[in-house]
Design a protein around this nucleic acid. Structure first.
Lengths: 345, 345
DNA sequence: CTGAAAGCGCTAACAC
DNA sequence: GTGTTAGCGCTTTCAG
C-alpha cells in the first residue's frame, strides 16, 4: 500500500564494523563513547566511519532504547510574536546542544495535544517543551508516571519543571503606574481566562485597584483572548459606556494593538484621550506609533532557559525539579499620559 | 551508559492483536488501511485500538520501512521575519495534513546542513523543505539519486521542485519606480551575494538603470548581507560620498530598516532627504514610521505552497516536478518622495 | 482475507 | 576490551 520508497542503502553500523574489522557492537560503543575501548580499536572504527560517511540512524537508535536526540515542542500556534519569540529562544539553545527540535503546533485541536504527547513520549523525543498547555490534565499524570522529562513554559504545574514570569506582579505594576499617573477608571481586557497567566494578570490588576482604594467596576473588565480582535471589540464597548475609562490595560500586546486601533477608529487619540498599556513586550510594541508602554516578559530568555533545563533533565534524570520565575519589567514608552481635567466631566 | 530511561509499557500493535483476537499483522493492515479486510474484523480491531488507546509508534513504523509522517525543514535561522513568515506558512499547511514538522536551523554551520540532510533523509523525515540552502551542491546529488522528495524555497535548482519569487522583476520594478519619481542617483545595498535571489535583485536594479539610460555607478552599489547592520553601514558610506544618492534600494526590509536608521542618525530625513525602498514586505515594514515602501514577496504563501507540493510528492513520487514562481508586487507606502531641486546641487 | 516470520539499524545485557 | 544475541514495534513478503 505504501508507495515504494526507494530504500537507500545507507551505510550502517554493520558496514562500518566490516570495514574496521570489529563486531558491530564495538562500533556502537565507540559511537556512544563508551569508556573502555582500546584506543587503537577506536581509531580504526573512527577511520572507517569517516571513510564510509556513517551517520547514525536515529530511529533505530531510539527504537532500540537509546536517545533520539530530539526535543519535542508543543505549542498552540505560531501566529503571534509571543509564540515566535519563545520558539526563537528555544532554537537558540537547541543550536548549541546536539539536539534537534521537533515542533508541533496544536492549532486549537485539544485532542491533538494528547496524541502528540503520546507520540513524542514514545521516544520520538527525549523530552518535551510545553508552551501554554490547553489540556494538561489529560496527560500530565502519564508524563509524570513515565518519568518523562518535560518543562512547562508560562504555565504553573505541581511537581514539575516550570518557567514562568511574575504575571501577577507585572499586572500590579502596570495598574499602579496608571493609577499614579492619575487614572481612576481603568479598563481591563482579560486574556483567555482559562489560562493561568490570564487569571494572574486579572488578579494583579484588581489588587492594585483595591490597594489604592479604587473600586473594581465590573463594567470595566472585559473578557478577551489575548488576540487583537478581542482588544478591538473590548474598547468599543468601553467607549460606549456612560463613563468610559481614561486608560485601558490589555492582557497582551496584540490585544493592546486592537485597543489602539479601536480608539483611533472611534476618532479618539492614544494617549491624549485614552492611555493604553500592554503585556509581553513583543518586538512590534516598539514599532507601533505611539510606541506601546507594556510589561516586558523575557520571552526568548524563557524559551532558552526552559530548553537548557529540559536538556539537563534528559541527561540526568536525577536532577531536582526547577521552577523558575522571571521578574517582569514595566517598559514605559509613549502610550500613556496623565488624564486631563476634561476627561472627568 | 545511557541513563536509565524508564521504558513505558505502551500499548503496541501486539496488545491490540491479543485484545482483538487476530494476528498482529492484521492489526497493521487495518492501521494502514489495507483494502481487503473483512469489515467485521476491522471493526473488532478498531474497537480494541480504541479501548486500549493505541497510538502508532512512528519510529518503529518508519524503521520498518513505512513513512514517518514527518516533514523536515531546513532553515538557516529564525532571526528575521523573513524566515518566520515562511515557517508560519509551512506550519499552516502542516496543520491540516497529518504530518508533523521537524524544524532544523543550521545557524551558519555549513557542515551541519549535510549532516541534517543525511539524518532527515534516512527516514527521520519523509520529505524535506529547504529554505535558502547554503551548501546545496554538497547533498543535492544524493537527494536526487535517492529520489528523496524535497522542495527548495527561494532558491533555484535544476530538475527539482522549487518555489520562488520574481526577484529580478521585483527589483526592476522598484528601481523603475524610483527613477520615475525623478531619482537619478539610486544607491543599492545587495543581499548576501552568494545567494541567487541577491544576485537577481542586483541584476534587476542594474537593468532598470540601463533601460532608462542611467549610468550604473559602482560607488552606489554596496555589499550587504540582508541584515539590518549592513544597511546601516552601507548608508553611512553613501552619505559620505561627494554626491550622495537621493534614494536607496535595499535588498531586504531588514536592510532597509538599517538604512533608515543610518539616515536618521546622520540627521537626515526619510523620505524628504532620502527615499528608501525595501524588499520582502515583512510585517514590520508597515509598522515602521515612515511606513516602508517595499517589494512584496508572498512569504507565507510560499511556505504553504512548498509544503503542499512536498506532501503531494511524498504521497505520489511519480508526480512531475513543480517549479513555481510567484510574482512580486511593489507596495507603495510612505518612504519615498520625488527628489527636490536642492538635492541636485 | 489472514497468519507467520523475516528483517529495519541499533542498544544493552550477557558472555568470553 | 570485545563479540554474541535478544529484542525495540512495525511493515512486508510469502503462505495458506
Amino acid at each position: 500500500m505504501m508507495h515504494e520508497q526507494p530504500r537507500p542503502n545507507n551505510v550502517t553500523i554493520v558496514d562500518v564494523a566490516r570495514e574496521a574489522n570489529v563486531s558491530y557492537s564495538t562500533v556502537s560503543r565507540v559511537v556512544n563513547n563508551f569508556p573502555y575501548i582500546k584506543p587503537e580499536t577506536r581509531e580504526r572504527v573512527e577511520a572507517a566511519m569517516m571513510k564510509l560517511g556513517y551517520v547514525a540512524n536515529l530511529k533505530a537508535r531510539s527504537l532500540a532504547g537509546g536517545r533520539s536526540q530530539i526535543v519535542g515542542m508543543l505549542i498552540y500556534e505560531l501566529d503571534t510574536s509571543y509564540h515566535v519569540e519563545i520558539v526563537k529562544g528555544v532554537d537558540a539553545e537547541i543550536a548549541n546542544s546536539g539536539y534537534d527540535l521537533m515542533l508541533s503546533t496544536t492549532h486549537k485541536r485539544k485532542g491533538k495535544e494528547s496524541t502528540y504527547v503520546t507520540q513524542l513520549t514514545q521516544g520520538m523525543a527525549d523530552g518535551l517543551l510545553i508552551v501554554l498547555p490547553r489540556n494538561l490534565e489529560a496527560y500530565k499524570g502519564d508524563l509524570d508516571q513515565k518519568r518523562f522529562p518535560y518543562v512547562l513554559i508560562d504555565h504553573p504545574g505541581l511537581g514539575c519543571n516550570t518557567v514562568l514570569t511574575a504575571n501577577w506582579q507585572g499586572a500590579y505594576d502596570a495598574t499602579k503606574y496608571l493609577i499614579e499617573l492619575g487614572h481612576r477608571r481603568i479598563g481591563f481586557v482579560t486574556g483567555l481566562i482559562e489560562i493561568a497567566s490570564a487569571q494572574d494578570r486579572l488578579a494583579g490588576y484588581q489588587t492594585a485597584l483595591r490597594d489604592y482604594g479604587l473600586w473594581v467596576d465590573p463594567e470595566l473588565i472585559c473578557k478577551g483572548d489575548f488576540l487583537e480582535q478581542s482588544g478591538y471589540e473590548a474598547v468599543l464597548k468601553f467607549l460606549a459606556l456612560a463613563q468610559p475609562p481614561t486608560a485601558v490595560f490589555a492582557s497582551s500586546d496584540m490585544c493592546a494593538f486592537g485597543v489602539m486601533k479601536g480608539v483611533q477608529e472611534a476618532g479618539w487619540r492614544v494617549p491624549e484621550d485614552i492611555s493604553v498599556v500592554g503585556f509581553d513586550d513583543i518586538p512590534e510594541a516598539s514599532y507601533m506609533r505611539p510606541r506601546l508602554t507594556t510589561v516586558r516578559q523575557p520571552l526568548r530568555r524563557m524559551g532558552q532557559v526552559a530548553t537548557r533545563i529540559l536538556i539537563e533533565h534528559i541527561e540526568d534524570p536525577t536532577l531536582p525539579i526547577s521552577q523558575i520565575e522571571f521578574p517582569t519589567e514595566l517598559i514605559i514608552r509613549e502610550s500613556c499620559l496623565a488624564p486631563t481635567e476634561s476627561q472627568f466631566l
